[in-house]
Amino acid sequence: MSAECPPDYAFPFGSSCYKIGRDRLDRSEAAAECASNEAHLVDIKSAEEQDFIETLFRDASVKEAWFGLSVHEVGGDLLWSDGSVLEFTAWAEEDRNRGRTEELYCALLSRSEDYLWVDKRGKSCEHDHKFICEFEQTEEHLEHTECPTDYSFQLVNSCYKIGRGQKVDRSAAAAECADDKAHLVDIKSAEEQDFIDTLLRGADIREAWFGLSAHEFGGDLLWSDGTVPDFTAWAINGRNEDVDCVRLKRGKDDKYEWMDKICTDQYEFLCEFEISIEGPAIPLQGKPTSQSSTHDPTRSTSDKAVDGDTNGVYSSGSCTHTLFRAE
């Protein structure tokens, strides 16, 4: 699990960071652009990484993109950017049997094929498309990072786990996190809210417990660590003063808003494990490229962070969108 990402490499997964290219380039130019950052076109070597890349592209509304698969020389075998051979594959149905042909020169991820792999030959590799670069972290980057097993998602200095398939009451959810020396996620910024939204959408979860609750009956709402919320993302009419627990609920616009709920109701949940890293915390970088809103019942209008440029890099923080389908 990575602890920090280079500028513009706003998406970590495992020990790598990723960047969606802002421009449309041909296959050769895209590879050169990645190489200029000591990176390479992404090598997708597992189903988990494939899921991660798919969700990045869906959020950024990318239609087609170059990735690391190609024939390095005419008549050669299909290889990844690092020269390794394929073990995992995710061909679109009509392209699945073409992976061993000498004609295939490069491959695209295509939204029309649910971001499965589509082959491109000859001059097709000179067409302009979006692309995604992968920067592989060194041991020096990783030496202070420790995330528990199953905590597959990372934002800045925290790792996250979705309690998939487990619908439990609020107390049981908190206990499950505590067993990992973690806590229900405390969402303290718009960047973290965007990050959590994307995790839950990717996992197709409609409602989930998180860290906000009254620590004593009828008390003020506090985070798991006992702090008072500064950032909020309440749904309109989402707060009832007589209810002590709060859940995230998917709205009509696919954004997750805060709504209070009886604590004995059962939902899935998100745990947050805070990494101990020497030195200062990693600063947030970049800005969201999708619209997010925070609704606070004490205000007459909602605060919004908007960037309509979905062709740009989606950056909810210095390290955002990670694997969206935990195993």
Rank of each mutant, 00 (worst) to 15 (best):
T298K: 13
E134R: 13
A235K: 02
L86Y: 03
V118F: 09
N37I: 08
T301D: 12
S189F: 12
S189E: 00
P12Q: 02
Y18G: 04
Y105F: 12
V228C: 00
A173W: 05
F324G: 01
E48R: 11
H321T: 11
D8P: 00
F131H: 07
F52P: 05
S316D: 12
C106V: 02
A60V: 06
I53N: 04
D296R: 02
A182S: 07
W209G: 06
D180N: 15
E4A: 10
K287I: 14
P12T: 02
S293E: 15
G218S: 12
F67N: 00
L86D: 02
A35K: 14
F57R: 02
S318G: 12
E94R: 11
H72W: 14
A39I: 05
K188M: 07
F135P: 03
A208T: 00
G238F: 06
H40A: 00
S171G: 12
L86G: 03
Y160E: 04
Q50H: 15
F210W: 02
N97T: 13
G99P: 04
G122C: 08
D26R: 06
R247I: 13
V156P: 09
A326Y: 06
I275S: 05
V42I: 08
R299W: 03
H40D: 12
V246K: 03
I262S: 09
D265T: 14
L116W: 02
E143A: 07
D253R: 03
G279C: 10
A39C: 08
F57H: 00
F153R: 08
T264E: 14
R250P: 01
E73S: 14
D43P: 06
E29D: 13
H127M: 15
D179W: 11
S315C: 10
T298S: 09
